[in-house]
């Protein structure tokens, strides 16, 4: 599991790759923390987690996402997820996470929704 981060205007774009299960969930949570601390510090409030590179996720990974979203919500921040692969999208539906998370089909559409300014400055790699 790997995480890379990119700042696009006022949006923090977090790209996740690999598998997130009970073996990697703690690492996933730890890797998200510094970025979410930005939220705590009031620096940035908008986060998009790009799950396009995630090919496997269990409830352990979902729990980490929920913990992150709650931490962010406390600081009046926003978390959205984007680019879910079909299997992950299905897991979001089965777990009803699609009802509590803002889910976008692409990173671009997530940016357009959260911050038109960031969307304008975003260059897909």
């Amino acid at each position: 599991m790997e995480i890379t981060c990119q700042q696009v205007s006022d949006v923090t774009l977090i790209k996740v790759q690999g598998r997130i299960d009970h073996r990697t969930a703690t690492d996933f949570g730890n890797a998200l923390k510094p970025h979410l601390n930005q939220c705590k510090a009031g620096e940035y409030k908008k986060f998009i987690i790009d799950l396009g590179g995630v090919d496997f996720m269990t409830s352990a990974g979902l729990r980490v996402l929920m913990t992150a979203a709650k931490a962010c919500d406390k600081q009046k921040g926003e978390v959205a997820v984007a680019a879910l692969r079909p299997g992950i999208k299905e897991i979001f539906r089965i777990s009803r996470f699609d009802l509590v998370f803002r889910v976008f089909s692409t990173v671009k559409s997530a940016l357009e929704n959260l911050s038109p300014d960031a969307a304008a400055n975003y260059k897909e790699v």
Binding site: S59, L62, R63, M66, S95, R96, F97, L99, V100
Partner: peptide, 16 residues
Amino acid sequence: SLADMSTIREDWGHSS
């Protein structure tokens, strides 16, 4: 559901 037990029904003592 996992969403319920992680949000509005967290700490209600049940699983998903």
